[in-house]
Design a protein around this nucleic acid. Structure first.
Lengths: 134, 134
DNA sequence: ATAAACCTTTGAGTTAAGTCCAAGGTCAAC
DNA sequence: GTTGACCTTGGACTTAACTCAAAGGTTTAT
């Protein structure tokens, strides 16, 4: 049994984050104390670790909600559903990687063409490239 | 001489975006018509292309503002200042790429271990991995 | 008995880069 | 002389995932 601050500290997050997760349907404490304090049990703590692990992997909170729903009703889902979600996410990430690689290459291209010296930037090739008509 | 809608259309952006750029000090129209309409000249149009090109490369509007400032005062800056900015940005992007590659590998790892079949997810290795204690 | 450290709720603020809306003024065509 | 397309301003809204503040109640230690 944990109080909110305790559970937060154990997982190195902010108590506000736990309230936020509750408001968004990700983690509801199993009970409340007589005075209204949130009380989390071990199952709650485990679910929180599920959430944080999935987040670290890169899932959004909305996606995590879907994963939790599946996890709580495993019998009603097929392995391929879950694998499909993960693979779709992988494709998205790959797209993002490709974009960034292209971006990095553009930058590298600009930097490579620049003398990089202490001279005035009057004729800087980088600025010229950005100025260029066309 | 262009009016806001004209310049926007030519560059395939929204007129609101031009007003937003003005508010944020990126592009001030060189004048106003008698009735208060924004009037952009060719130099303005060229600066807009500078902005859009830098944005396509991946710079944030704040960074573009810095680039513009340098561009407008080239004599006061050295090539190495500009090159430094570009290279710093490249390092940041590389870091982001590394993170995403790691994320993608994590996902791939999960997906590879999953049978992906039409069977119930009762014993899905992906969900198990997220559930795992430790 | 009181101070410190915790908890409660509601609601607003944060970042980035726009996008949309309302209420109204202007311009060109027919 | 009146549509319709354009323009003006100010301000609110969007997404994601928190984070903070205010005003007050509870618990724990001294």
């Amino acid at each position: 049994m944990y109080r909110i601050g305790e559970l937060a500290k154990l997982n190195q997050i902010n108590a506000d984050t736990l309230r936020y997760y509750e408001k968004n349907g990700l983690l509801k404490p199993s009970g409340r104390s007589a005075s209204g304090y949130r009380v989390y049990n071990d199952a709650d703590a485990q679910q929180l670790r599920f959430i944080l692990r999935a987040k670290a992997i890169g899932f959004s909170l909305t996606e995590i909600q879907e994963l939790l729903e599946i996890d709580h009703n495993r019998a009603q889902w097929a392995c391929q559903d879950v694998k499909g979600m993960v693979e779709a996410k992988a494709v998205l990430i790959q797209t993002k990687i490709d974009e960034l690689v292209q971006f990095r290459d553009s930058l590298q291209h600009l930097a490579d063409a620049c003398c990089g010296g202490p001279e005035s930037a009057e004729h800087c090739s980088i600025l010229d490239a950005l100025e260029a008509n066309s």
